[in-house]
Structure formats: structure tokens, C-alpha cells
């Protein structure tokens, strides 16, 4: 097996880390929460950073009319399937393909990851903006529009008394490394190919 294919093999396996580690974490800080509320997002689950955090986030959010964080969303089925399929594809490429296929897999993963992030953004937007018309507390922006409570996709944002942090976690880094390593496999494979061609 060529070195570049071995690298590609590693690249194809790395995204499976998403089944072990959380993809993202949203943390909510407020003076009344010396231990911040937090939620881990796995590719197939939402989970509490500390016991009962999601319940307590829901309790806070109901005052402004936000929906409860659902027990399950369709993405929890689609995303794992996507990761498994692309990993299998990556493995096939690692065993059978050449550097051009590595580039293909790299681009495919970039596109799918971007689509996943966009989907996440849409969910967050809906979660933060589709508010119960009978919300206990209604807030408006300075321009008169209804205030939304969308947590940031990436970064830190102040939402009323809360400071929300949203950052990728280890699972996301595994995915990112897989994608990056596939590009390295591509570069390496291309170099090897050119060497061979030069001879």
C-alpha cells in the first residue's frame, strides 16, 4: 500500500471520532449560575454538561417563549449515516483510489460539513426566533423588531443576562483533522505520482 493511501486510510477513519466525542458545546453563563449551564451536541444526541442542564436551559428559555430542546431531531439519524457512508467511501478510496479521489473525498467532506453547519445554523435560528406568541417576556431590538435568542454558531454572544459560548469540541476536531489529512494524502499522492511520472 502506498504511503498516501495509508494517510488516506487514517483520514477516512478520523471522522468516526464523532461517535465517541461531542461535536459542539453551548455554554450559558449568568451571575446566578456560578457553574454555567451547558449542553453537548453529539452527532446523535444532546446531553447535559452537568446533570439536568438541558432541563434548566428549557426552564430559563420558556420565559421568553423558546421551544424546549427536543429529545431527538432528524439530524441524529442523518448525520451518523452520513459519517458512516463517507467513511466507508473514504476507506474504499484509500484501498482502491489514487490521489485524485483523495481530493474528491476532501471536497465532498468540505461540502457536507458546510451543509451540516448550515443545517445547525438553521436549527439554531429557528430555535432562537420561533417564539411562542404568548411568551411571558417579550423583548424587542432597538429598531422595534422582535428580539431573537439564537446562540452563536461559533463564538461568544451576550443574550440578555446570559453570555452564550458556542465552540466545537473534540468530535469536530476529529472530523476537521480527517478532512485536513485527506488533503495531505492528496498532496502526498500527487507528489509521489509526479515523481513516478518524472522518471
Amino acid at each position: 500500500m502506498k504511503k498516501s493511501n495509508i494517510i488516506m486510510l487514517v483520514a477516512a477513519l478520523l471522522p468516526l471520532g464523532l461517535f465517541l466525542f461531542p461535536l459542539w458545546k453551548i455554554t450559558l453563563e449568568a451571575p446566578q449560575y456560578p457553574i454555567p449551564l451547558g449542553m453537548y451536541i453529539y452527532i446523535n444526541d444532546f446531553s447535559d454538561a452537568n446533570p439536568h442542564d438541558i432541563k434548566n436551559i428549557n426552564l430559563m428559555n420558556h420565559y421568553v417563549g423558546m421551544k424546549y430542546i427536543p429529545e431527538a431531531i432528524p439530524e441524529f439519524k442523518i448525520f451518523p449515516a452520513g459519517i458512516i457512508i463517507t467513511s466507508i467511501l473514504g476507506l474504499l478510496i484509500a484501498f482502491k483510489g489514487n490521489y485524485k479521489w483523495f481530493l474528491f473525498w476532501f471536497i465532498l467532506m468540505l461540502v457536507l460539513s458546510t451543509a451540516g453547519l448550515y443545517d445547525f445554523y438553521l436549527w439554531e435560528h429557528d430555535y432562537g426566533h420561533t417564539l411562542d406568541p404568548k411568551a411571558i417576556m417579550k423583548f424587542t431590538n432597538p429598531d422595534g423588531t422582535q428580539m431573537g435568542f439564537q446562540p452563536p454558531l461559533f463564538g461568544t454572544k451576550h443574550i440578555l443576562n446570559f453570555t452564550a459560548h458556542s465552540y466545537p469540541r473534540l468530535g469536530a476536531y476529529f472530523l476537521a483533522m480527517g478532512i485536513a489529512v485527506s488533503f495531505i494524502a492528496f498532496l502526498f499522492g500527487r507528489k509521489q505520482y509526479k515523481k513516478l511520472f518524472a522518471k
Binding site: 455554554t27 453563563e29 454555567p36 461568544t156 459560548h165 465552540y167 466545537p168 469540541r169 473534540l170 476536531y173
Partner: peptide
């Protein structure tokens, strides 16, 4: 695995 996380420690 603090290496990954330290960069993004929020508070």
C-alpha cells in the same frame, strides 16, 4: 485532552 480544549476555554 486539554490540548484541544484550552484554546477555546471560555471563562
Amino acid at each position: 485532552i486539554g490540548v484541544f480544549l484550552l484554546a477555546f476555554t471560555s471563562c
